[in-house]
């Protein structure tokens, strides 16, 4: 029975019913919600949703908040007051309390949305970090920053122990000396290398 009624509403949404049936639907308040939902689904599928959808949550939240016991506000305002005064206080400003809660609730929702947005952005940013294009950097922590030598190398050092600053400097000096010498040797050996390949050619 439920299913057949759903089908009927669905047909009405699609405009496949006559005027009489439509009038019947208008009279049937229970089907209105379903009618709205079907239209929403149809709009979503066609991509015709407006910028913001008024799902009428506010009414629900307000209703829920009204059901909440109002304890905090009276205590905060007058913790020393006696029961009578408290009663009168509640009578005089009930709307105030509710509206305060409403505001707090709205802020909380807004704040939680912002938090989700930030967390979302962060995790999105972290993703590419995981597969960083330079794994070397992740696995080998940098010992300070290296002053560029003339050949512009910046060694990344794997730190094994806690070195003193002096030791780190000395270590860096030695590493730089080796790297510079390595690069200088390639310059000096460039002649030798070509000679070498040449003699190899001759030998062949």
């Amino acid at each position: 029975m439920v299913k057949s009624s759903q089908e009927w509403v669905s047909a009405a949404v699609d405009g496949e019913v006559n005027e009489q049936e439509l009038a019947q639907l208008c009279a049937d308040a229970d089907s209105h919600e379903q009618w709205q939902r079907y239209h929403m689904i149809g709009d979503t599928m066609r991509g015709e949703l407006p910028e913001s959808i008024d799902l009428d949550i506010t009414a629900n939240i307000a209703a829920a908040l009204e059901l909440e016991p109002t304890i905090i506000a009276p205590q905060a305002i007058a913790p020393q007051e006696n029961d009578e005064q408290k009663q009168s206080n509640l009578d005089s400003k009930p709307s105030n309390v509710v509206s305060l809660f409403k505001q707090v609730g709205q802020y909380a929702i807004a704040a939680s949305v912002a938090l989700v947005a930030i967390v979302g952005v962060q995790s999105y940013n972290q993703e590419p970090d995981v597969e960083s294009p330079l794994p070397v950097f992740n696995t080998r922590p940098l010992v300070g920053s290296v002053s560029p030598v003339s050949l512009q190398t910046g060694p990344v050092v794997k730190q094994q122990h806690d070195f003193t600053e002096e030791q780190v400097l000395e270590q860096r000096r030695r590493i730089n000396a080796y790297i510079q010498d390595h690069m200088l040797q390639q310059r000096l050996n460039s002649g030798v290398q070509t000679e070498h390949t040449y003699t190899e050619d001759v030998n062949r």
Binding site: L134, V136, R140, Q152, T153, G154, P155, V156, V157, K158, Q159, Q160, H161, F163, Q167, E170, Q171, R174, I175, Y178, I179, D181, H182, Q185
Partner: peptide
């Protein structure tokens, strides 16, 4: 590739490292 054999320094040297330009 360059290979150096030197007298060990008093300072400990890192066992391995990779520079940013791939050396």
């Amino acid at each position: 590739i360059s290979i150096y054999v030197a007298r060990a320094s008093d300072n400990p040297m890192p066992e391995e490292l990779v520079t940013r330009n791939g050396i």
